[in-house]
């Protein structure tokens, strides 16, 4: 047999083995993914009956510590926030949640996530096979990779989400939060004044989310969680007013409500202690109350300790 023919046979065998192995391995790993306790595996597995859902980016993760919410409110809470999750992605996640699970009674949204671009989109591929909404968002951001993901089944599992799902195979991910206080270097590092600049499509998505929730009779809380003492954005009042106006729903603005650096992990995120302090404030102010009609609130909530109303 000529070398060219042998090489062709070898190459065809290689392609066949790669594709077959890809499908078999992906099938096994997908089973593993769906058994995980990671928040999105739980979401798409279904059967959740949380009373309160939290959406947001990393500030949503750190400000709304789910075990503390349950302690403070007595409600079953599930935090679906994730680092860099924009409202556009949150919209798809929320709609998938209510399709696969019992709808919650309340949804809390950390609205500074509107300044986040679509960085999380690259992670969405892992669950894109389970959600046409995530698949569409992913294909919009990564058209070539989306095609690759449809060709090779292992490729969608190439993500931080999949690694996290492995990590949370037998334990909940809802109790993950920074527990240490901000390092001294971060407390003293000088910071320039900065502004919250929302992406227009994120604000549009936020408006759609609020509309959907109102339509379904689900209570919604739009919240600005505390920033570090020396990191408060200069335009937070105008930002809150913009979101309030666009979503026709008041924003609960706690931007400067926590001032002790020991209650922050860094200048952007609360730590566990700070989250507990913040959640007690929200509970005291009635944010978790199911009966308070949105219309009874002031245009956006002014906290007595608020830093920048």
């Amino acid at each position: 047999m000529s070398d060219v023919r042998r090489a062709l046979i070898w190459f065809v065998a290689l392609v066949a083995i790669v594709i077959a192995g890809d499908h078999v391995l992906a099938w096994v790993l997908h089973k593993v993914l769906m058994r995980s306790q990671f928040r999105y595996s739980r979401l798409y597995r279904g059967g959740n009956s949380a009373d309160l859902i939290v959406l947001g980016d990393s500030r949503g993760v750190h400000s709304f510590y789910a075990p503390a919410i349950e302690e403070v409110t007595g409600l079953r809470a599930m935090n679906l926030s994730y680092n860099s999750m924009s409202p556009r992605i949150a919209e798809a996640i929320l709609m998938d949640y209510v399709e696969h699970n019992r709808p919650p009674r309340m949804v809390v949204i950390e609205v500074t996530s509107s300044i986040v671009s679509g960085a999380l989109a690259s992670e969405l591929q892992t669950y894109a096979g389970l959600s046409p909404r995530l698949a569409a968002l992913y294909a919009e951001e990564h058209p070539v990779a989306a095609v690759a993901g449809r060709t090779f089944r292992l490729f969608p599992l190439n993500s931080g989400f999949f690694l996290e799902a492995l990590h949370y195979m037998w334990q909940t991910d809802q109790d993950w939060i920074h527990r240490d206080a901000m390092p001294p270097a971060l407390r003293t590092r000088p910071r320039n004044p900065w502004r919250l600049v929302p992406f227009a499509d994120n604000v549009d998505a936020l408006v759609r989310i609020v509309g959907l929730l109102h339509h379904r009779g689900i209570e919604v809380r739009l919240v600005i969680a505390p920033y570090g003492p020396s990191n408060v954005p200069v335009n937070v009042t105008a930002y809150a007013a913009l979101i309030t106006r666009r979503a026709q729903t008041p924003v609960w603005n706690y931007v400067g409500a926590v001032t002790d650096p020991d209650e922050f992990a860094d200048q952007v995120h609360l730590n566990e202690r700070g989250s507990r302090v913040f959640l007690r404030m929200l509970q005291r102010d009635g944010a978790f109350g199911m009966t308070s009609p949105p219309g009874s609130m002031t245009p956006f909530h002014s906290h007595p300790h608020g830093g920048s109303q």
Binding site: V18, D22, L29, F152, L154, F155, L157, N158
Partner: peptide, 8 residues
């Protein structure tokens, strides 16, 4: 190829 697909 599988390693690159899964971990690349």
């Amino acid at each position: 190829a599988w390693v690159v697909l899964l971990f690349g």
